[in-house]
């Protein structure tokens, strides 16, 4: 694993000057992941429609110092399948040196991954495409103005799950995409967080190293949609992990490993109170929801710990 110094010396493949919001977790994640591609490896990227795509590619500017394509909303994985096949063909024809190492990175937000892009993702995983899929999960459709997705946390207010007299924000629990992806029996799937660069870097290196599909699900703070303070973004991401809302773990060749176990699991309120989207949960009449939230996290965390170190 590269040291911090080595990382810092590596070429920046994702440049500054992009249009992502102040405090957005995405650029940090992408920079780190692109720095984790091995020495002498090239990387080709594709991004689904979303904040990352719009924020980094409006002509005449581009943040990408890699070959990069945006296709549409639902098909980053399918597009990457075609790209991978094309490079393989170029290698077969001798137009690219056969031993040249090229890595393929497909990227999408939670809408483009959990929802509309899920079928294409599942297809690519099942076919065993040799690529890394990165989901930057900010928990809603932020690019179109904060609509709920199947990654949106329970109780969260969005423009399509507004907190009011009919419902107290989103009434469903988040889809456990990391486990669903792992159920495709791919070599590597992991959950990580924008704040823990060391863990994320190691996971990205591993994801690029394995042969076959690898999946990274990274929680990415969104001050705009979370109604959180931009300067507290990394703190907010950290609390998602410390409260065990977003456990960081990996499933490597079928073996699950919890990568971080907080010494003292913080109450979920610690994470919720930093975000305006959960403001209504602190009203007297919603006390029960807070408990429901905590109970569910406790249950999921206990289940995860049960699986720690096991072949699943």
């Amino acid at each position: 694993m590269a040291t911090l110094k080595q990382l810092a010396e590596k070429e920046e493949l994702f440049t500054g000057g992009h249009r992502l919001c102040a405090g957005c977790g995405i650029p940090q994640i992408i920079r780190l992941i692109l720095r984790s591609v091995g020495e002498n490896c090239s990387v080709v990227g594709t991004t689904a429609t979303g904040c990352l795509e719009v924020g980094t590619s409006i002509y005449p500017y581009s943040s990408w110092r890699i070959p990069w394509i945006h296709s549409a909303f639902e098909n980053a994985s399918a597009t990457m399948t075609g790209i991978e096949a094309a490079y393989n063909a170029l290698k077969r024809k001798g137009k690219i040196a056969k031993d040249k190492e090229i890595k393929f990175l497909a990227m999408g937000g939670d809408g483009g991954t959990y929802d509309i892009g899920f079928q294409a993702l599942s297809g690519a995983l099942e076919r065993g495409q040799d690529f890394v899929y990165l989901c930057y999960d900010n928990g809603a459709y932020m690019n179109t103005g904060i609509q709920r997705s199947s990654a949106t946390p329970f109780g969260s207010a969005t423009t399509t799950s507004p907190a009011g007299s009919a419902i107290p924000g989103k009434t469903q629990w988040r889809k456990d995409l990391t486990r669903i992806v792992a159920a495709h029996n791919i070599p590597y799937a992991a959950q990580a967080s924008a704040h823990n660069w060391k863990d994320l870097q190691r996971k990205a290196e591993r994801a690029f190293a394995v042969k076959g599909p690898a999946f990274l699900n990274v929680v990415s703070p969104c001050p705009l949609g979370w109604y959180s303070k931009p300067e507290l973004s990394m703190e907010t991401a950290k609390l998602a992990v410390e409260t065990c809302y977003w456990p960081i773990y990996e499933i490597d060749e079928g073996v699950l490993k919890v990568n971080y176990k907080p010494k003292e699991k913080k109450p979920i309120e610690e994470w919720l109170k930093l975000q305006g989207r959960f403001k209504h949960l602190f009203k007297e009449e919603n006390k029960g929801l807070l408990k429901e939230f905590q109970d569910r996290i406790d249950l999921e965390w206990a289940r995860l710990l049960d699986l720690d170190g096991k072949h699943i």
Binding site: G111, Y141, T144, G145, Q147, T159, T160, S161, P162, G164
Partner: peptide, 14 residues
């Protein structure tokens, strides 16, 4: 959600 029609969904959601 899709721009520029999302407001219709949002308003009816309320």
């Amino acid at each position: 959600p899709i721009t520029p029609s999302t407001e219709i969904a949002e308003i009816l959601g309320y």
